[in-house]
């Protein structure tokens, strides 16, 4: 077990009806570590991120962020289910970018980036705009700040979504197949932003992806999920050069053949 991990999944299980999506999973992610999570669809990758974002509850097991439990709370030595205040406080440490962007269509790029900082962090409008301007600049969209999502390309929308999540100053950023819904020619611009983010900021990042090339060069560690468990995990180089598990090999072969 890792010393002082940023994120810890401890024996976490998630079911949808009788189907077990995540099956007693253990995973530690170090501070500032970049972890790529790969696996076939239905292997539990997205569930993992959704539980950490507190969008879905765990069925059993525990999740810790900076050593503090997300999935329960302790009051006077007693273990209680988390209340809304606890969940919201813990959730403040995490940001998420979705496969389908999920920008707010009635707000401009700027509006998307300042709404939550003003309403949740209590920033003044001016302060929120200042912060958002920096972030939109970082994702290369300062000139598009007054555009509505429908006026932006998929890649641009996804970059706004990244800026929007960063505006909440999370410590952990979750990327859920963020290039899967993009036209091929716009995938690169989004990956470039994520790469820069990893290089220039102190962020723990968990990236669910089907882009094996990106996982190899971006991640410190790659985890291969199969049927809700981590089937193999290794530093990115080793993982791709010398996969140990037969299932990993089969998966990588299939993905590489698909191009």
């Amino acid at each position: 077990m890792m010393q002082d991990p940023m994120v810890r999944f401890q024996n976490v299980t998630k079911r949808h009806g009788s189907h077990i999506v995540v099956d007693g999973l253990n995973l530690d992610v170090a501070r500032n570590e970049k972890v790529a999570i790969i696996g076939a669809s239905g292997s539990g990758k997205t569930s993992l991120l959704r539980m950490l974002m507190a969008l879905d509850p765990v069925d059993s097991g525990e999740i810790f962020i900076e050593g503090e439990p997300l999935t329960h709370m302790e009051r006077q030595g007693k273990r209680l289910p988390p209340d809304m205040a606890h969940i919201r406080r813990m959730r403040g440490k995490v940001g998420m970018v979705f496969q389908s962007f999920n920008l707010f269509p009635h707000l401009t790029a700027m509006g998307n980036c300042i709404e939550a900082p003003m309403r949740v962090l209590g920033l003044t409008r001016a302060a929120a705009i200042e912060r958002a301007t920096e972030l939109l600049e970082m994702v290369g969209l300062a000139s598009r700040k007054d555009y509505y999502p429908s006026q932006l390309s998929g890649g641009q929308q996804q970059r706004v979504a990244i800026a929007r999540a960063l505006a909440m100053r999370p410590k952990v950023m979750l990327f859920d197949e963020v290039t899967s819904a993009l036209d091929p020619e716009t995938v690169g611009e989004v990956l470039t932003v994520i790469r820069r983010l990893g290089e220039e900021h102190d962020l723990t990042m968990m990236v669910v992806t089907h882009q094996m090339g990106f996982a190899r060069e971006f991640a410190d560690r790659v985890c291969f999920l199969h049927q809700g468990r981590i089937c193999e995990e290794a530093p990115a180089r080793d993982f791709f050069h010398n996969p140990q598990n037969e299932r990993t090999r089969a998966f990588l072969r299939a993905v590489l053949e698909a191009g």
Binding site: V94, N102, H106, A116, V120
Partner: peptide
């Protein structure tokens, strides 16, 4: 539903999400 989730992921509370994000749409 994904609009609710995006609001939730940004830590907006339910009331704010309803009035500021969902209602205008």
């Amino acid at each position: 539903r994904s609009q609710w989730e995006a609001a939730e992921a940004l830590n907006l509370n339910r009331g704010t999400a309803l009035m500021r994000i969902i209602l205008p749409q």
